[in-house]
Design a protein around this nucleic acid. Structure first.
Length: 587
RNA sequence: CGGGGAGUGGCGCAGUUGGCAGCGCGCCUGCUUUGGGAGCAGGAGGCCGGGGGUUCAAGUCCCCCCUCCCCGACCA
């Protein structure tokens, strides 16, 4: 039993000034965590209980799919990460340190290398596979900007698992098992989530999905269909196919547009001097051509122009995800100086294309559909063209998803409107493939005695982050409202009488009964603290069932409150233990 | 790394033209109180983020640095 008179906790009346998001504010205020370092938090008794309960649920479901728990050191030698190039590739986010002999170490940000090498050490036959291993470990990342308390720290608790299979089918099965287990875990945690398609990015591999919890404080943006189940990371979202148009009857016309280097200026001038009869010109009629510098990992660079409708912004992250592993940046001054054919503000695709005289590759967004006519630059100062038709007057080298996705864009699956939402990544399942196995030489002999490279999956859950994510949902103005599965206790009993009166003995007796039944109990046995304070603290701490032994005891009842629904009920003292046990077990 | 805000007791904050470092909450003692963050009285608790400078005198003015929060960049 946790007696509040002795429990190591201090609740705060005011929000801490450095906390902004609800989970951070309330977890500090209710005495669950306390900041100890930039991006590092001390888990106090209440918080530690919640964390362990989350951890247990994760462990239970991992064990249920046959994954086996191991535990690596957090402190790792450099050479292992050197082998995969991550000692340098991980960059500034890697915590590096040096021991007394001058040897380099790192604090593990994730443990692909260690798991791969461990399996390599033990296994050499296809008969040993498949196998899945996991650990629940403290991970370290030297985040440029830790923020939002537990949601993004530099030290955090993570469950990471890895599957090892002989072939792609096996990997698909292991992936599906993890994916299913993750759904069970987040459901058990009472944590709303959305599974979104993610880009596998530079890591190679194919299938990758993120489990996002749709909270405002989240740092990931994703889209979700308002009608069907489609959801995707904004980087991975694809747009619905659009029908081609036939606007080839539109004449191609040169118009003088002095000092019209911006789309707004061009549209304004068109409406003044070349008004349409059917409607006004808008920025959506213009073709915006954005010049980018593409740098391949080997250092090779290329100038690339991407065309999008003028009412849209280019989403560089989305583009970069598709061009990965190349890096993207807007072309700088020096770049423009070197590309004399490009007239800033007046760029048009007429002179572009890999096979054109300029040799500059030109891609356009799929929304620039075949046969559509556009207003765009004439590649001369002060001149634009209208009626530039794709397929007649220019032909791109290809299409690429380039525009910033907006709420209302059509879903690629069903065509209904997409909606943009914010979320926090609480899990990630990922078909890693053979990247690490190749590099680190993890292969086994197959049935025919041939060496086969093992294929891997990697699967992560942010355990400490999940605690914060739950708190993001499970709270109201008064405080936390933990789901039963993770609450620091089952019942919070408040003695709301005068010290030494009958309420104390009645409460103590009730608590013993509850404990004997296996419930975890918090008892507010503080003396000299007024009932109002105790009620506030109980609501702040957020245990799902609050029992008040106070003035109603005179009528032979105690009060049972449901912190989640706010329901209140008076129950006869004699029936109280059974009733409370029923609530806690049934809830 | 860029932009903005802020560092004063455990928490939240005030501190004027430079002149004895304050308030509320919390904490300790005593008395009163006991169903919605009680009252009275008396206490404890400070490297005013750090370093340098100006000055008779610096929380306050000047310079440098550090840290925290927010936005962006970055981010399994």
């Amino acid at each position: 039993m946790l007696r509040l008179s002795r429990l190591f906790v201090r609740t705060l009346r005011d929000d801490p000034a450095d906390a902004e998001v609800p989970s951070h504010r309330l977890l500090v205020r209710a005495g669950y965590i306390r900041r100890a370092a930039p991006g590092g938090y001390t888990w106090l008794p209440l918080g530690w209980r919640v964390l362990r309960r989350v951890e247990e649920i994760v462990r239970r479901e991992m064990d249920a799919i046959g994954a086996q728990e191991v535990h690596f050191p957090a402190l790792l030698p450099r050479d292992v990460y050197e082998a995969t190039g991550r000692w340098t590739e991980y960059g500034d986010n890697l915590f590096r340190l040096v021991d007394r002999k001058g040897a380099d170490y790192l604090l593990g940000p994730t443990h692909e290398e260690m798991f791969t090498l461990l399996v390599k050490d033990f296994y050499s036959s296809y008969k040993d596979l498949p196998v899945s291993l996991y650990q629940i470990q403290t991970k370290y990342r030297d985040e440029a900007r830790p923020r939002a308390g537990l949601l993004r720290g530099r030290e955090f608790l993570m469950k990471d698992s890895y599957s090892f299979d002989i072939d792609d089918d096996g990997l698909s099965r292991s992936y599906a098992e993890h994916r299913d287990a993750y759904q069970r875990i987040f459901t058990a945690l009472g944590l709303p989530y959305v599974v979104v398609r993610a880009m596998s990015g530079a890591m190679g591999g194919s299938m990758s999905e993120e489990f996002l919890s749709p909270v405002e404080a989240g740092e990931d943006t994703f889209v979700r269909c308002t009608a069907c189940s489609y959801a995707a990371n904004t980087e991975a979202v694809t747009t619905a196919g659009r029908p081609a148009r036939d606007e080839s009857s539109t004449p191609l016309t040169r118009i003088d547009t002095p000092d019209c280097a911006t789309i707004d200026n061009v549209v304004g001038l068109l409406n003044r001097e070349y008004p349409r009869t059917d409607r006004a010109w808008t920025s959506a009629d213009t073709l915006k051509n954005v010049v980018l510098a593409v740098r391949q990992p080997d250092g090779a660079t290329e100038t690339l122009v991407v065309g999008v409708p003028g009412d849209r912004e280019v989403d560089l992250k989305r583009l970069e995800a598709q061009l990965s592993p190349a890096a993207l940046a807007p072309l700088d001054e020096a770049g423009f100086a070197a590309q004399t054919a490009l007239v800033r503000g007046y760029i048009g695709p007429q002179i572009l294309g890999a096979s054109s005289a300029t040799g500059i590759r030109y891609l356009c967004d799929p929304s620039v559909v075949a046969g559509s006519a556009w207003v765009t630059g004439a590649n001369e100062h002060g001149v634009h063209v209208t009626g530039l038709v794709r397929g007649r007057d220019f032909t791109p080298d290809g299409e690429i998803e380039a525009v910033e996705v907006r709420s209302g864009d059509p879903c690629p699956v069903c065509g209904s409107a997409l909606r943009i939402a914010r979320g926090i990544e609480i899990g990630h399942v990922f078909q890693l493939g053979r990247k690490y196995a190749d590099t680190l030489g993890l292969s086994v002999l197959d049935q025919n005695g041939r060496q086969v490279t093992v294929t891997m999956g990697s699967y992560g859950i942010g355990v400490s982050r999940a605690v914060a994510a739950i708190a993001e949902f499970a709270h109201d103005d008064l405080g936390l409202k933990w789901p039963r599965a993770v609450a620091p206790a089952d019942v919070h009993v408040v003695i709301a009488g005068k010290p030494g009166d009958a309420t104390t003995t009645a409460a103590e007796s009730l608590c013993s009964d509850l404990e004997r039944a296996g419930l975890e109990v918090i008892l507010d046995d503080r003396t000299g603290v007024s009932p109002g304070v105790k009620f506030k603290d109980a609501e702040l701490i957020g245990v799902p069932t609050i029992v008040i032994v106070g003035k109603s005891l005179a009528d032979g009842t105690i009060e049972v409150r449901d912190r989640l629904t706010g329901a209140r009920d008076n129950i006869a003292v004699a029936e109280a233990p059974a009733a409370v046990i029923g609530l806690c077990r049934g809830g």
